[in-house]
Design a protein around this nucleic acid. Structure first.
Lengths: 350, 350
DNA sequence: CTGAAAGCGCTTACAG
DNA sequence: CTGAAAGCGCTTACAG
């Protein structure tokens, strides 16, 4: 452990002033090419690491960070968590500072997405956190941000072939496999399994598709269950809608032993099962919040698979900030742990 | 959001110099009582928060932190993780600095514990992280540290009635319930359950007792299983020893459907089950590492219950440091999340 | 293109 | 018991 290297040390070795060293290190131009190279070489050789305390003390640069995520409405409180995590992240960077501006778009409304996106651009952020759930519209925004040289990171959903700094979220395929393994260990191998997809338009939602693929893949290479896998789509969580579709399914398939819901709308199925005396069915779904938590607690839902949205959002903010403030380049993808949650360990996951 | 309050602001309002304010804030004495009170009142009112960047920049105080944990030996790699987490914590406090010194004691050897403890005291640490597994000896050390006014925090195991700053670890009782719920959902209600305790001297190990209590409590108020719960003690993980005891148990109890191992030595039972063709038994135990991971991957172990030792150790270090450097008082107890891990989600818990 | 200087908020001697 | 001053390492004008 040698003594810490300071700008001053580099300046001495290079025979220039600390101002010049600073200009080189920050690429602020106005330095003769030969000087620049000499300074760079010395900084490299001495393994210079800036003292961030001094930096924070001096420059109260406030980074403007814009967040573009779905509006949290109705029973689905999933997106309520992310702002909390991002605020936590903002607290955690103290003594550095950031200004946050949230832009919420209606989940499945491209027009609203575009409206929010252009408001975001007008705000002139230094960096952007976005959930690119609508693919085409998101790509368009990415291009605009690329042009403006504004860095952006993805949360929850990923789109390949963009210049996003990183993606932080769930490995949806693997999360499908986890769900499958839980149902497999919870029901006997000769019982049928019902797969419920609750979404307006499944094709647009890659995430749910990946979970479905993962779910089925598990039974190809690992599962014990060798009975039917029945798949059904429900357009929304309206109790009437859910009932009319599921009534029919259960009538035609009396041998169903387990139910898999591929999204956070698990509560809608739990509600149905509870109301219609089918609580002996083994139910697995996603995300610990609101009504899902209640049904888990009362053991109508057997397992939820969680991804800690708060921690995820905090981590995402941190990565973007570290890039802006310290030029730290994150990994392109960062899959988060997949939590298996039941009534017994739910209390300790705050 | 008002402007940040500085020492200077307090000094102005109080009509004294910043030196005096500093003396008051740090309790460095040598201040007239009335001045002191005036300054305190103003600091309180203005809600003064020191700028830690300035503090870090100025004082390169290096805190000496001693760590007293079991020596990691043989198959049980559980304690290999904690030093990693503590090193991570040390990195994370940058630009502050700490010096670490690890004192390892043989897990069940009171003499060695005492020897290491006195070496630790001689090192004159500013703070101590300890795993107080041996109760009496640990309490003795705590008293000595109290006398020396050296703060200490507990990791992994807790002892009430000490002045430990905090305890970070598992809620063992609840972790027992989690294990029970997993076995309950994995085997049919009429199958017997075998409880295996692998430990030299169960009475001395509160942690395992709490897990046992939690395990049994689950079946009192929530479980479906209404068959026998058979309990057995094995003194160590010697394959011969394990075999001779378990052979007898299974001979006398042909109806066993699930096995619960109350400690991280789950691999010893897995080894036995695999070798003697009993892999259809549902096996649940603790801690994701080494051989346990292998058996989980190959589905001989169905579930492991984990507590993320690395994160736990990092968090513990952080709490101690925040107390030393910023006088932040942590909660007396901080139970960590209980992870449910199977072959499908193990890969994402690094 | 480059250097010298001021100052961020705090802590640490030193002088009185 | 109290104040004035120096300095931590960096960044930001300003002067040349």
């Amino acid at each position: 452990m040698s003594k810490t290297v300071r700008i001053k040390d580099i300046a001495q070795k290079a025979g220039v002033s600390i101002g010049t060293v600073d200009r080189v290190l920050h690429n602020r131009g106005e330095v003769k090419a030969t000087t620049k190279e000499k300074v760079m070489a010395i900084a490299e050789k001495l393994n210079y690491k800036p003292n961030i305390a001094a930096r924070a003390l001096k420059s109260p640069t406030t980074y403007k960070i814009a967040i573009l995520i779905p509006l949290c409405q109705g029973d689905n409180q999933f997106w309520k968590m992310h702002p909390i995590g991002i605020e936590n992240g903002k607290e955690a960077i103290y003594p550095f500072k950031a200004t946050l501006e949230f832009f919420y778009y209606e989940m499945h409304n491209p027009n609203d997405f575009m409206r929010q996106a252009s408001a975001l651009v007008q705000w002139q952020p230094n960096g952007v956190i976005m959930a690119p759930i609508l693919k085409n519209e998101s790509v368009e925004l990415c291009h605009k941000l690329d042009d403006l040289e504004v860095p952006y990171v993805f949360i929850d959903t990923n789109i390949d072939d963009t210049n996003s700094l990183t993606f932080i979220g769930e490995d949806a395929y693997q999360a499908g496999r986890v769900a499958a393994s839980l149902i497999d260990s919870g029901i006997s191998p000769d019982k049928d399994i019902l797969i419920v997809n609750i979404a307006k338009n499944l094709e647009n939602i890659q995430h749910l598709q990946h979970r479905n693929q993962g779910f089925l893949s598990y039974f190809m290479d690992a599962g014990n269950n060798n009975a039917l896998k029945i798949s059904v789509e429900i357009p929304n969580t309206e109790p009437q809608e859910v009932k009319s579709i599921l009534d029919k399914v259960f009538e035609n398939n009396p041998n169903i032993g387990g139910v898999f819901v591929s999204s956070s709308r698990t509560f809608a199925v739990a509600e149905y099962l509870q109301k219609h005396q089918k609580q002996n069915l083994f139910l697995v779904g996603y995300e610990l919040f609101g009504k899902n938590s209640d049904f888990l607690q009362h053991r109508t839902i057997n397992f939820l698979i969680g991804q800690r949205p708060i921690e995820q959002a905090e981590k995402t903010f941190k990565k973007l900030f570290d890039y802006l403030a310290h030029n730290t380049i994150p990994n392109k993808k960062d899959y988060q742990p997949i939590d298996i949650i039941n009534a017994e360990n739910m209390g300790l996951l705050k």
